[in-house]
Each structure stands twice: as C-alpha cells, then as structure tokens.
Amino acid sequence: MADRRSVFTEEVVQRAASFACAADEVWRLQRGSEEDCVLFQRWSNGGKRITDGGTRQGFWVFSPGGKVLGRINSRSPERVGAMLDAALERWSELPKAERQLDPEADRPPAHRWEDGFPEGGLALSRISRDLSPEGLSASPSNRWNRDTVWCSKEEVKAMLPDRADVLLGSAGPEGIDLQPLADRLAQFALVDDARGQTLPYAPAEIEYARLVGRVVEVNGLKVTVELSGSTKARSADTWLLGDNNWTPRRRIPHGIECELLGSATLNLEEGSFEAIELMAVGTRWGRTTFNGRGKDLGPSPIGFHLTLTEDRLAPTFASLYGVDWIPRPEVPTWRDSPAESGLERR
C-alpha cells in the first residue's frame, strides 16, 4: 500500500481522468480460462493465450477494441505519467473503428468471487497497519493493507439472539457470544498482511478466538453492544488448508495474537448489524512467503480496524471460507492455466 501512495500523486490522479479506469487481480486474469481472462490474455499477448509465468502486473492502457496503447510496471509517478501521456497520444491517432468493443468479445465470466457477496449479511472492510511499540505516541506506519470480511445473512442471524433473549438477560453475564465472527476474523482477517499478502489460518491453528457483545443500550428493536475479545493463531511447519492456489511451497512458522475492542448496533428483528466498528491491537511473529517479513521476524505490534462496507470486493481468502453460500468456479483456478490443465486453446 505504500507503493500506491507513491505512485498516485495528484498529477497521476488528474491524468487518470482522461481514461475509463478499472482495477483487477492479475493472477486469475493471466492464468484463467474464464471469458474475461481469455479476453485479457488475447489483448495483452498478441492474440494468444498466456502460457508463461511472467507477471502482467502494473498499468496497462487498452483501446476498447483491444489494442495495447501502453504498459508499465513501475512505482515511479513520473514514469507512469509519461506512459499515460504516450498512450493518450496513440489513442488520438486511433481510427474510430478501433475504439469500440466488439460485441462478440463482451462475454461475462461464469464465475467471479464477488458473486458471493452476502446480500443482507455482513460485509466488513478491514485495514491492517504495522504499529510501533510506542503505539499512539508514534507516527502511523506507512505499511498498511486492506481487505474485506464476509458473513452470510444466515450466519449473522444465527449469531444474534432474538429480542426477548437480550431483554431477559439470557444472553449471559458476558453478553452476546459472537463466536462465528470471532472465528472468521481469526482465520482470515487478523493476519499479518500489512506489508503484503500472507496466508490464512486453519481452524486447528486457532488457539483461541473470542468476541462478545455486552449490551449497553436497548432502544426498541435496536441494541447497542460494546464488543471485546481476543484471538491467537499459530502456524507451525504445516499447511492444513488443502491443495489450492494458496498452498505454500515453504512452510514457515508464524503467528499472531490480538486484543479486540469496539461497538456495534444490532437490529434483532432483522438479525443484522446496523453498525459495527472493531479495532484490534496485537503482536505478530514469523513470516510467510510474500508478506515482506524476511528481515522482520518480530515479534512486533500490528493493528486492525474493521467496519461496515458497501464495497463488493471479495475477501482475499473467500475461496478458503469453506461455505456453500460462496459459489465456486467449475474449474478451480489453480489448475486453470492452459499449460497445467491441457485445456484446448481458443
């Protein structure tokens, strides 16, 4: 995320106004065989499917007809800006006929993880950030990342008591037990990705995960709760989440433990969260292959902020949630490259 800050200067943001802009995940696009993946591969690779492993990360400029007008993979705003200027120059010289998307090429993919967005459920944005041992008295680190967390409508309903339970105090002296949310956070969200993508934890690697809501106000059908909890996860030299695109080549010990505090407004009639804000502060240690901790095995502090979002971006580890309400692709992505799957090239 520090790279985004350096690349997206005011000048680059202003230049972007001349373009229709899109962002997407490169790994799937350059290896997959869904319709949108094939379209990208043909456009970016001279009309052919991509079979090599070289990354296509970075900034591309295409005409809507599929002509490459520019490409760069750089953190330099000056170089990115120069590429955008050159691409606009090429665009201005492009015949009108090449400025249209061929209707035949407009084929939606059969599957995207965003299709699993939990309508009526819980969608959280999650920010992670490296912390200083000095905590709030230090300047915020520029190492941060973002992700989302999903719970289905049914999962949320099952988590919350009905109104009578709360009013009668039968939610227990500790409050409303939000164990399913605690488990989801500990497995997939409270992870050490402030410097780059990391790995989730298997249920067996969660030493504990607790989140409770203590009722502080009841206002008709709405209940305000103070949230508190704690989590600890530890991964040794094993990988317990199966054969998939996250399976690491090297298994490196790592772990994290957090204290959580926050608040939420629950609508018990709807069985929904009307508001939630949760913060976590804790300690991470060890590393994973791509999370940028090669020279920083810790332990060191890390923090998280979670709140409701309308963003439909899929959680990074949606494919590992292990739930039936998130549709899965017919052909698993990790076996989806022509070289690996032997699929017929089109």
Partner: peptide
Amino acid sequence: FLDGVRRASEEQRPLLLWLMNGHPLGC
C-alpha cells in the same frame, strides 16, 4: 477488467487497467 472495457467503449475513452497480485483495491 470487463466492467472497465465496457465503460471505456461506452464513453469512447481508452481503458487504464491496474493489475496486481491481489486485487489492487483490496489486499
């Protein structure tokens, strides 16, 4: 990507596509 292509075609503008390992707007 496809949403961007459609918008570019509708608006008659070039498509600026930002690609990263992990969704650039996410993790």
